[in-house]
Amino acid sequence: MDYRFLPKKGLSLFVDGLLKDFKVYGPVKMDGFPVYEEVSSAKELLLMHSPSHITPKKYLFPQRETLLRFKTGEKPQVEHAADADNQVLFGIHPCDIHAIRLLDRVFAYGTPDVNYLRRREKTIIIGTECLPDKFCFCRSVNTMTAANDFDLFIHDIGAGFLVKIGTEKGKELLFRHVKTRKATIKEISKLVEFHKKKESMFTASINAEPSTLPLIYSGSYDSPVWEEIGKICYGCGSCNLVCPTCYCFDVRDDISLNMKDGERYRVWDGCLLEDFAKVAGGHNFRKTRGERLRHRFNRKFQFQVDKFGGLFCVGCGRCSRACLVNINIVEITNKLIEERETGKKE
């Protein structure tokens, strides 16, 4: 892999350069918390931040996205909407880089989802490093570092930035806007050191090999855990909506007041919400919160793994962080592991 060294002041030049051709989104502070917003200069960007509440997936799979535009009438007219700008997602953490890799797979699988794929095509991903908080557990699911699936990866090494080249496109952009030089072994080793430090900082971890988790989950269908956490769960869907790999959506129509022009759009949905699996006739296939929690946890550790390969939990801890009743994905998983080991299921 190609590593370059970018002097400290080069970053601002680089971002200015990007801003000429792209919308640039990156982490900024809002009410004291990191969120991804559009930026107009490098000054606004956070170079080291804890995980954002809402994931950067919103730039690839927006909360609300128009799919079709139509005109009603005798002969309705319909056209496909695929509005996508060239964009740079800056400051994407390894967990979210992995999450985007998984979303790429989902939306390309079977019938390709043109809306997502078109946005993705026009997106440049620039990763940055991070340090874990008490909810992060990426180390436990092999997503602590990202080897590829980004265009560039920038790491602050004090005197300047170590820039890992992920794609030709990323390299071309870097070379177009700033002068860099080949990074020295010493500079590269700073990233290795950083990873060592990061690795030692996790307080949350899953007590089993990631590859064993699908099996553990498949054996835990009848665990009492689901009913227990179902009792305290709000069914508010926050865990779904902050998850970087949740991609379920609802499709709705909106029509303007002239009752002629309208659009069909999709919005984020969540399997924890009461009506998610309810059919028009009224039957609800996952009526209890416990069933819905089981479904969500299994989607992360078993169901989607069977379907797409690879765990669908990237260890960002957002769901645990967002849960008001402290349903913690690491604790639940460890509990299931323990139940399996002790064979205890009262």
């Binding site: 969120v35 508010c236 869907g237 909506l241 009506d275």
Partner: peptide, 11 residues
């Protein structure tokens, strides 16, 4: 669904 959903949608 609860207002939490609207909050997340709004960011």
């Amino acid at each position: 669904y609860p207002v939490c959903v609207d909050c997340k949608m709004t960011g």
